[in-house]
């Protein structure tokens, strides 16, 4: 079974490899793993006014896992946090033409997106709370 051209392209020229500082307030980080194959995926988003302005990933795994996360970062850029939550693994399967045995790679990418979004939302909520507290304390 051969990989599709799109998978090979993303594998050979991965987009957005790298990382942001995990601690930054405007960064959401998702680290997930697939216990069946041992792949590990880190996906990060940078958010400005509810819009994802940049995304980066680092994946330790097979070609399909790398391609799935590379594609995911491309798709994430420019989307709002809410829109990003709507990305489904089936979209990735379709775009990359993944064979049935590699579908779990796309699931991993979806999980990573969700984890990154949750991490960002958690930080944002915490910050809003702090601001409110500070504001009321100041008043």
């Amino acid at each position: 079974m051969a990989y599709s051209d799109k998978v090979i392209d993303h594998y050979n020229n991965p987009r957005n490899i790298g990382s942001f500082k995990k601690e930054d307030e405007d960064v959401g980080t998702g680290i997930v793993g697939a216990p069946e194959c041992g792949d590990v995926m880190k996906l990060q988003i940078k958010v400005e006014q509810d819009t994802i302005v940049d995304a980066k990933f680092k994946t330790f795994g097979c070609g399909s896992a790398i391609a799935s996360s590379s594609l995911a970062t491309e798709w994430l850029k420019g989307k709002t946090v809410e829109e990003a939550g709507e990305i489904k693994n089936t979209d990735i399967v379709q775009e990359l033409n993944l064979p049935p045995v590699k579908i779990h790679c796309s699931v991993l990418a979806e999980d990573a997106i969700k984890a990154a979004l949750n991490d960002y939302k958690k930080k944002a909520d915490a910050e809003t709370r702090t601001e409110t507290t500070t504001a009321s304390a100041g008043a």
């Binding site: 680290i31 216990p35 590990v40 880190k42 680092k58 330790f60």
Partner: peptide, 21 residues
Amino acid sequence: SAKDIRTSPPADLFDEILELQ
């Protein structure tokens, strides 16, 4: 199925793996 058993991922190990990469 093994998938029916949910286990929490070893986060510290993931960090180490990615750094090693």
